[in-house]
Computed example of a mutant assay.
Amino acid sequence: MRELKYTSHDGTVIDLNADDLWVADLQEMRGYAWTYTLATRGIKSVSRNASTAKMTVRTTDPSRLDMVQTAFDSDVQAVTPGMLTVDGEWTQQAYVVGSSLGLVPWPDYAQVDYTVVLCDGVWRRALPVQHFFPMAAGTGSQLDLPTDLPTDLAPSKIALTVDNPTGKAAEFSAIIFGPCTNPVFQIGANTYEIDVTVPAGGYVSLSATGLSKTITLTAENGDVTNIFDKGVRGDGAGSGSYVFEPIPAGESLLEISSNYGIDLTLYDVSGGVPWRMLSSPTPS
């Protein structure tokens, strides 16, 4: 499928692969460049920053360009980026900050070259959600012994497997379902811990992407509380107890206490639009 859409900050969706309005290719958006500082024997301080690219829009109904321009301008004026989506899965925040006439317009044809600011430096796509519910609803939080002792056994951790097929450490987001207190889980060598009580019917949302690092608590009634300070960050990335640590490539052991569930979403990241996206359609 060939698909390209722009969604403005107010929800306006512009289909850029329609019969009467389309972008023929994304040549400039396939390229990318790392920002870096030269070191004695290599490079350091690497990052992928915002960049500009050209996007050529063609249309057989030039009047539609007025609506397109209004949506682009509204995002710039609001200083709130829109979202480019390729093939329904690869996304990047963007502004369209200028245009120039590509060809002299005819009554039934026009071509405009737009200057696009790609804000994120990378394209992202969400991989299928991985669901982990190690204990069925209604199961107790302790293991009842057959003999009458003063105490029962705390539940053991259940070992599960997280799959990261991207070939590199992946950004992620997670939803932790209540009820639970101070939920802790371990993936590979890193422990993820949030010091909060999650009520029944509530959940914690953890975002650990380059776009946002946030932690919120949603109560059963829908009230949302910012609990960013409740995430344990240790000594930062690589410390073994960093709540935003990327998920290692390949399969990793997930250990989770047995009284709550987790939905885990990993993100694939690419510097440019992947070459398999928006390839030329097969001739009919």
Rank of each mutant, 00 (worst) to 15 (best):
A18G: 10
W106E: 13
P150N: 08
V269W: 03
P183T: 10
G98V: 10
T70F: 07
S8Q: 03
V129D: 05
G42F: 13
V76C: 03
V117K: 11
G167C: 08
Y6G: 01
A174M: 06
Y242S: 02
T209V: 04
S241Y: 11
F72L: 02
P199R: 07
P81L: 04
A18F: 12
R2A: 05
V198W: 04
D144Y: 13
Q92A: 09
A33W: 12
S8W: 06
M29H: 07
V86Y: 02
G201Q: 07
E245R: 07
L264W: 03
V204F: 08
P81D: 03
P150R: 09
A174N: 05
P146S: 10
M1P: 06
A18N: 11
P150H: 11
W90H: 00
G238T: 15
T197W: 05
S212N: 12
Y36S: 04
D66R: 15
G210D: 07
W106Q: 15
V79R: 14
T85D: 01
A110G: 05
A53G: 02
T139Y: 14
T80D: 02
V117E: 08
T197P: 01
L145A: 13
G236M: 09
K168C: 09
T70A: 10
T7K: 15
D235R: 14
T161K: 13
P105W: 08
W34V: 11
V104E: 09
L266K: 04
I247P: 00
T181R: 08
A189D: 15
G210Q: 09
F185V: 06
T37P: 00
P281C: 06
D75Y: 04
Q69I: 13
P199Q: 07
D108Q: 13
T56W: 05
S205M: 10
G188E: 09
G102I: 06
A110E: 09
Q27M: 12
V23T: 07
P179S: 11
M277S: 07
E193M: 15
M55V: 15
D20E: 12
D75M: 02
F185E: 01
Q93N: 13
L16D: 03
T282L: 11
P199L: 11
P248M: 09
K213N: 06
V273M: 02
W123F: 04
V23W: 05
A50P: 00
D19K: 15
L26G: 00
M277P: 00
V224R: 03
A50Q: 09
D235A: 15
L84D: 00
L127S: 06
N226C: 04
V243Y: 05
P165L: 09
S205R: 13
R124I: 05
V46K: 12
T12M: 03
I187M: 03
P248G: 07
V23D: 03
C119M: 15
R64K: 15
Q69K: 10
K54D: 05
V269N: 02
N17M: 13
I262M: 06
T209A: 03
S156F: 14
D25Y: 09
V196H: 06
S99V: 07
L160Y: 10
L278N: 03
D268I: 03
D235W: 14
V68G: 00
T85C: 00
